[in-house]
Computed example of a mutant assay.
Amino acid sequence: MEILLLTVFLSLLLAVLFLLLFLRDRRTETHRSMEQESLSPFATEIPVETVRK
């Protein structure tokens, strides 16, 4: 019976931690996805113009 209480306690603790981290992430000004974050280094590159012959 003690292991059941420990499991419930840890589950609630993880749920609260997830909720706090989620709310902190939503309060930030930039709501960007991981895909947008991974492409951000390419935003500073200067595009090379193609030369037509």
Rank of each mutant, 00 (worst) to 15 (best):
L23C: 02
Q36N: 02
S33E: 02
E2H: 07
A43V: 04
F42H: 02
L6W: 11
S38D: 04
L6G: 07
T30H: 07
K53P: 06
L13Q: 06
H31Q: 15
F42A: 07
E35C: 03
E49W: 01
E49D: 10
L23V: 13
L19K: 08
S33G: 15
E29H: 06
T30Q: 09
T28H: 03
H31T: 05
A15L: 15
S38G: 01
R27F: 09
L14A: 15
L4C: 08
V48K: 08
L10R: 02
Q36A: 09
F42E: 05
R24I: 12
V48Y: 02
L10I: 04
M34L: 15
V51N: 09
L39C: 01
F9S: 14
L17T: 10
A43P: 00
L12Y: 04
Q36V: 04
H31V: 03
I46T: 15
T7R: 14
T44C: 08
P41Q: 02
I3W: 11
S33F: 05
L5I: 07
P47Y: 03
I46W: 04
E37S: 05
A15Q: 07
R32N: 05
L13A: 15
Q36T: 07
L21Y: 01
V51H: 10
T28K: 12
R26T: 05
M34I: 15
V8C: 07
V16Y: 09
V51K: 09
M1I: 05
L10D: 00
F22V: 10
R26D: 01
E45W: 03
L12T: 03
S33K: 12
L17P: 00
H31E: 04
E37I: 14
S33D: 07
L13S: 13
L5C: 07
M34A: 12
M1E: 14
L6P: 00
A43Y: 08
L13D: 00
T50Y: 06
A43R: 13
E37M: 12
S33W: 07
E29K: 13
R52V: 13
S38Q: 06
P47S: 11
F42R: 02
L19N: 05
T7S: 15
E45V: 06
L10M: 09
R24Y: 06
F22L: 13
T50N: 04
L39Y: 02
T50R: 04
L20N: 05
R32M: 08
S33R: 15
P47K: 08
F9N: 04
S11Y: 02
L13H: 03
V16N: 03
L39Q: 09
R24M: 10
V48T: 08
D25C: 01
P47D: 14
T44P: 00
L20D: 00
L13I: 02
L17Y: 06
V16S: 10
T7W: 11
T50Q: 11
T7N: 12
P41C: 02
E35A: 13
L23D: 01
S33H: 09
M1A: 12
K53R: 04
L13T: 11
F22H: 13
L39A: 03
E49A: 11
L13F: 13
L19T: 11
R52D: 14
S11W: 02
E35N: 12
I3D: 15
R24F: 10
F18R: 13
I46V: 14
L19M: 08
V16F: 13
P41G: 01
L12I: 10
P41W: 04
S38W: 05
L12H: 04
T7F: 15
I46N: 12
